[in-house]
Each structure stands twice: as C-alpha cells, then as structure tokens.
C-alpha cells in the first residue's frame, strides 16, 4: 500500500492499555402466548406440543403465530412425541463464555438438532452422549426429563440415544 493510503494512526506504539467494560444487562423476556402454553404443558404434564399450519399441515416446534412458508396463521395445537431423530449433531470442545452465566460453559458437551416424532421442524438440545463416534445423523433419541420441572426447555435434561 502506498504512503498516501497508510493510516496515520496505525502501527504506532499503542499496545498494552485496554479499557475494560462489562456489558451486563438483565432482561425480562415475555414468553408470549405460544411459548407460555408450550412450557406450561411441559411443566405440568411433561408433554410436548406444537402447532399445525392449516395450509401445509406442518407441525411447528417452537410453536409460532405464522407459518412462514404459507404466509398464513397457524392453527390447532397437536401433541408430539418425546422421541425423535437426530437431524444434526456435534460434540462441542471449544471453550466459550456462556452469556447467561458470564462463565465458561463446561466442555465437552453433546449438542444436536432433534426432530421429534410428529413434528416438522427440529429443536436444539443437549445430548447425553459425548463420544462423536457413537453419535450420528438419523439415530433415534428420547427425552430424559428432570424429576422437577420448572417450565423451561431444560425440564428436558438431555436426549438419550435409543438402542
């Protein structure tokens, strides 16, 4: 690069000092109509529900007001199974700070996209298994519920490989 396009500020001695700032914001997210109903069912009855699009019949989890594909409103609630199939999976080895705790998330952990029986879309969740050789796309898994359910997605502790 030419002398002319050299940044006058660049390269000069400015190493060392870095000014810290902690971004720290507490939120109170509204769960809204769809998530409230879903998590209530999960907590009270240990059941998983989605919503069906009356147009294309897709069953959506997470439930939502609109089917983007049909550009129309969703309709009835339908129950789906607590078993499903791995659509994609990995074992995370990379350390990073969990934004919700401000601390490093323990590694390794199994992580997958899982399509529950009866659903058209898939959910993110943890896998019990952390050996990538034992995991695989297409393998069947089952939700392992926690003994005490609070009404969050973590009421399902993780998914366990079947067979």
């Amino acid at each position: 690069m030419s002398e002319k396009t050299k940044n006058p500020a660049a390269g000069k001695k400015a190493e060392g000092l870095r000014v810290p700032w902690l971004l720290s914001v507490e939120y109170e997210y509204a769960a809204g109509h769809f998530a409230t109903r879903f998590f209530q069912e999960l907590r009270d009855n240990g059941r998983i529900w989605g919503v069906r699009c009356p147009g294309c019949q897709r069953v959506y989890i997470p439930p939502r007001p609109v089917c983007g594909i049909c550009a129309g409103k969703t309709g009835e609630w339908v129950e789906v199974g607590d078993e499903g199939v791995i659509v994609g999976c990995t074992v995370v080895n990379v350390p990073f700070i969990d934004p919700m705790t401000g601390e490093q998330r323990p590694i390794p952990y199994g992580f997958a996209i899982i399509r529950l029986d009866g659903a058209s879309t898939a959910l993110y969740h943890f896998l019990e298994e952390t050996d990538p050789k034992k995991l695989g796309v297409g393998k069947r898994v089952k939700a392992v519920f926690r003994p005490e359910r609070k009404g969050t997605l973590l009421d399902i502790k993780h998914f366990r490989l079947l067979d």
Binding site: Y29, A30, A31, G32, H33, F34, R64, P65, K73
Partner: peptide
C-alpha cells in the same frame, strides 16, 4: 406488554 413477545407484537401490527 408482558403478554406478547416482540415477534407477537410485530405480528399484531402487520396483521
């Protein structure tokens, strides 16, 4: 608006 996510809020006005 504790009864609505912002997604549902946008849905309300767009609809």
């Amino acid at each position: 608006k504790p009864h609505q996510t912002y997604n549902e809020l946008v849905h309300e006005v767009v609809d």
